[in-house]
């Protein structure tokens, strides 16, 4: 009798588990695949039942999104900004993290605290002062060299992105560098290797797994970012998420659904592909790196 009751509870429990897991899975898979299917629907198919499958593959949406909505240009800008920001970030943060983790010198503690404090700086507040700083800077440059290049410049945007990612990246990388035994460097110095050479040839290769984690997380955040991008790139040069926002706004007045969802897929696809390729790395990296803001 008692056993039967336990069995009943057990089955109920299993059902509960599968219902909850199933519900969340569906709530994620359905909307994401719906927009992917919607991107190949013709505009007339958007009136009426939204659950109807597309009649055929209407690829014109993507062509329109690429040319008419300029998502092709924006894609290129995003690629440019993201890769430049990643390169700047790595060049700047790797040596800094290495030195901060492995050399003792005057002021090291202060510098560590300084960079750690950056983890609490919220990028969305400081975007206004950065914008105003660039307005002033551009005015100054205008009077000095007759040219302005701080606002509406993808390189400057990349520089700002890299700077805002510095605290988290340095924190994560020095967390790794601290764990390497001192013997490696000592052996290298005995062999007559200089400081720079030791860092480049011995320490950096060992840090490859951490570097990959850094690249993954920051690629996602740079590629998806739009508040800074929207503020600092005010003219024709825009990044993908800002372009998508424009499409969303345009869609409200002139319903052009197909183009909107094609644009959405263009923004989403690179991150999804990357995710599928490296999902293990990404979800494991979280336990290594702890929390990002």
């Amino acid at each position: 009798m008692k056993r039967k009751k336990e069995m009943g509870f057990h089955t109920l429990y299993r059902i509960f588990i599968f219902v909850t897991l199933g519900a969340l899975t569906i709530s994620i898979i359905i909307p994401v695949s719906w927009v992917i299917l919607a991107s190949i629907k013709e505009n007339s198919e958007f009136y009426g039942n939204p659950w109807v499958m597309p009649k055929g593959i209407y690829f014109q949406n993507f062509i329109d999104a690429f040319h008419k909505a300029k998502m092709g240009d924006y894609f290129f800008h995003s690629l440019l900004v993201t890769s430049m920001a990643l390169i700047i970030l790595l060049i700047v943060s790797l040596p800094a993290a290495y030195v901060l983790a492995r050399y003792s010198f005057k002021g090291r503690k202060l510098l560590n605290i300084l960079f750690m404090g950056g983890l609490f700086i919220n990028v969305n507040y400081i975007v206004v002062p950065i914008f105003l700083m660039f307005v002033d800077g551009d005015k100054f440059l205008m009077s000095l060299v007759g040219n302005r290049f701080l606002l509406n410049n993808p390189f400057i945007l990349a520089l700002v992105y890299a700077s805002t990612a510095l605290p988290f990246t340095i924190y994560l990388l020095s967390g790794f560098f601290v764990t390497i035994p001192k013997d490696y460097e000592e052996a290298a110095y005995v062999d007559g290797s200089g400081y720079f050479r030791t860092m480049m040839k011995i320490m950096l290769p060992m840090a490859t797994p951490s570097i990959i984690t850094v690249i993954l997380f920051n690629f996602l955040s740079f590629w998806n970012e739009y508040i800074i991008s929207m503020t600092l790139l005010t003219k024709d040069v825009k990044t993908l998420p800002v372009g998508l926002m424009q499409l969303m706004q345009a869609q409200k007045s002139a319903a052009n659904y197909g183009q909107l969802y094609a644009g959405l897929v263009i923004v989403m696809l690179p991150t999804l592909v990357l995710y599928i390729l490296v999902q293990k790395k990404l979800t494991q990296g979280m336990s290594v790196g702890g929390l990002k803001g």
């Binding site: 700047v92 040596p95 030195v99 510098l111 960079f115 400081i126 975007v127 805002t164």
Partner: peptide, 25 residues
């Protein structure tokens, strides 16, 4: 020199685009 060269770029970017704007707020 080595320590200085490694730290300075990060410090400059951090001060310029993180600390100064925060004080600016």
């Amino acid at each position: 020199t080595f320590i200085g060269l490694c730290i300075t770029p990060a410090l400059i970017l951090y001060i310029l685009f993180m600390l100064l704007p925060t004080f600016g707020v």
